[in-house]
Each structure stands twice: as structure tokens, then as C-alpha cells.
Design a protein around this nucleic acid. Structure first.
Lengths: 198, 198
DNA sequence: ACTGAAGTGGGACGATCGTCCCAGTCGCAT
DNA sequence: ATGCGACTGGGACGATCGTCCCACTTCAGT
């Protein structure tokens, strides 16, 4: 086996863990499954990490920090704020359809974090991050559409996150594209009503 | 230990399993944890059930079948369809606040079922049941409000389920009552727009 | 009262988990 | 080249998992 410095090994293990969680669920993300995916030995695992819990914590932190602005991207298109919101939500839906396992993994990691008091802050941080990204996109959209949010934009963002969560969960179970599009349409409708002309 | 016929023991074990999953998560719902909660011995478990998987399957089936019409109850109140929908969603939210662990358990069971091909149908059935309950309530609400759904009521119900899912997930993480109420308000807004005067 | 089936208790099995140990090997600074 | 610290491989530990076995007790039907 090639000799790899510990910091790089940590990153490689986190990546391998994400693949395992995505493909088989967090319950199957054992230390042995992770090192097998990474092509290492168990000793390398505990040389890079003190414990499996430490790896999971870093996995959550890393994956949250890496989260991009999938919802409501830069090239906002549409006639008015409602169209722009719907286009953004549909684009998120495409992202979900392209890699369902990743979103399912995120969902499982959230639930996992929710179950232990010391990990709960990680889940809260995850949603804070989502809110931040959502608020940024919502601000940009309002700017382009020439409207202002009548509610604080962070509040609007939290509602947006709730809607995308619901869309994600429902589609992961039913795989019903029509319903997902209907949800996107209805959500854009409701959100656009929280804005008013500038 | 009192002698209990196997069918009753099955029911008692399912109840105990639900309590364990609610309080500690499905990962901690081991056979030993379940029989301890039920006050039985391990032998009684495998006398009533062939395997732990069989118990979990019956738990999901039971808990889904027992699910009541928490969303949009009988005593629908409000001036118009929008008010009625918001009142119903807020009532669901009260139900969520009263027993968060139960909804968290439902969420975990869904995710668990989603992870194995042979259990996937259980998750789909769970959502079919939700849709059925939602459609019934939506029909009743439309009747009282003197409107008709311009989209098939099952479709509206599926959107409603997505919204309640999102509300649930977000609130379970953030415990932010204000956001939950904003979500309920926005969701009622969007849903009411899928109805038209009769 | 007797008998067979139904239900119970406790201990044990093999598998797998997270973690650890330690002898060995590689690479870099000197 | 050489020594030392960084890294690796394999095997092992105790704990816990799901499941099983078997001797035992209780109850219902006769």
C-alpha cells in the first residue's frame, strides 16, 4: 500500500464513508466497510481517526460545508419572481433526480445527528447552512425581479428549505415526477406571495 | 412471567418496539432492547416472531394502518378553504409538538424501509395511506367551503403530504415554532390556489 | 388425574462490531 | 548511509448482535 500522510487519508476516508452511506445507508457504514471502500486496512483508519464517531462527525461537517447553491442557481431565469422560484426549485429537483442517493444520505445523516445530544448541533448547523444558501439565492432573485421580501429573507429561506425537504422526502419514496413538479409549482406560488413590488 | 398467547405477545412486542424506536432510534431497537421494554425474555420474542425483520415489518404495517386523520380533522373551521387548510395544518403541527418522537420514529422507519428492496413497498404503502387520509380530508374541506379541486384531489393530497413532511423535518431539527407556522401559512396559501369556486 | 401442546427461562452459538496492539517497513532529514 | 518518526498490515480483544436450543412449567381438553 502506498504511504499516504494522515491528513490526506482522513479526506479519503471521509469520501469513502460518503460513498458507503449513499449506497448502503449509515447503518452499513461500519469501519470495515469504509476502509474496504477506501482500499485501506483497519489500522490506517484508527491512525487517521480516533474513532468512528469522529469520522462521522467530520463527514457531516465536510458534506455540509461543501454543499453548493443547488437551489436557485446563478443564471436565474423567468419573467417574474414566481417563475424564477419555480425554475430554481425545478433545477433542484433535477439535481435530486441526478443523484438521489446523495440526498438520501444527507437525510440519514441529519436523522443520525438528531439522535444524540452531542451531535444535535451538527444537524442544526446543517440547516443553518441551508438557510444561508437559500437566503442568498432568494435575495439575488428578488433583486433581479425588482421586488422586496415583505418578511425577513432568512424566514423566507427557512420556508423554502422546508418545501425542498418535503419535495425530497416525498419523491425519494414515491419517485413520482409529476407530484414533485406540482410541489415545486405550489411552493413557488406560496413563496412568491411573500414578496411585494419595490 | 404471566403466560400470554402468541398473538397478544406479538402486539405487545410491536408496541414495545415502537416505544424503543421513538425514544432511542431504530438503530438501538435491538431484540434485547425490545424485550426489555416489553418485560419479556428473548425466547418469548422468537416464539412470537421468526426474526427481528419480521417484527420491524409488522411494526411499520401496524403503525401505518393505525395512523389517524391528524391532518385536517373533522371539525373543520374557517371562513374559506384557505383558512380551513391553515387551521388543519396548524392542528397537525400541534400534534407534532405534542409527540415529536413519534413523527421522528415514522421518519426513521420510512428511511429504513427505503434501504432494502424487499421493504421498499412498505414505504410506498405508507405514503399511499397518507395520500388516502389527506384526500379524504381535502374532499371534506372542499365540500364545506363550497369549492372544487381543479386538480384531482389525490394529486392535491400528495402535495399536502410533501408540505407536511417538510414542516415536520424542519421543525424536528430547528424546533422553530415561528417557521413552522410560516410554513403552514404558506402551504395553505398554495393549496387553496388549487381549488376553484363550485 | 393425565397428557400433550403452548409458552417460558436461561444459557449458549457464531458473526460482526469498534477498537487496539505491535512488529515491521518506508521515506526524509541529517 | 543511517537513524528516527511516520505509516502499514494482520491479528486479536471484549462487547454486542440475532438466533437457537433445551429443560422446564403451565394450562386446556379429556
Amino acid at each position: 500500500m502506498a504511504r499516504i500522510p494522515a491528513p490526506e487519508r482522513r479526506a479519503a476516508l471521509v469520501q469513502a464513508a460518503l460513498r458507503v452511506v449513499s449506497q448502503r445507508g449509515i447503518a452499513h457504514a461500519t469501519t470495515r466497510a469504509i476502509v474496504a471502500e477506501a482500499g485501506m486496512s483497519l489500522a490506517s483508519f484508527h491512525y487517521a481517526f480516533d474513532s468512528r464517531d469522529e469520522l462521522i462527525d467530520e463527514l457531516i461537517t465536510t458534506v455540509v460545508a461543501r454543499e453548493q447553491e443547488a437551489v436557485l442557481p446563478d443564471d436565474l431565469q423567468g419573467h417574474d419572481i414566481r417563475d424564477m422560484l419555480e425554475a430554481g426549485l425545478l433545477r433542484y429537483f433535477e439535481h435530486l433526480r441526478a443523484d438521489p442517493e446523495h440526498e438520501q444520505a444527507m437525510l440519514e445523516l441529519t436523522q443520525y445527528a438528531l439522535r444524540s445530544p452531542e451531535r444535535h448541533p451538527l444537524a442544526v448547523a446543517q440547516y443553518a447552512r441551508y438557510t444561508e444558501l437559500g437566503a442568498r439565492s432568494l435575495s439575488a432573485a428578488a433583486e433581479l425581479a425588482g421586488v422586496v421580501w415583505s418578511t425577513p429573507v432568512e424566514q423566507v429561506a427557512r420556508v423554502l428549505i422546508a418545501f425542498t425537504d418535503g419535495l425530497t422526502l416525498t419523491w425519494l419514496v414515491t419517485r413520482d415526477d409529476d407530484v414533485a413538479q406540482a410541489v415545486a409549482h405550489a411552493a413557488a406560488d406560496a413563496l412568491s406571495r411573500m414578496a411585494e413590488p419595490r
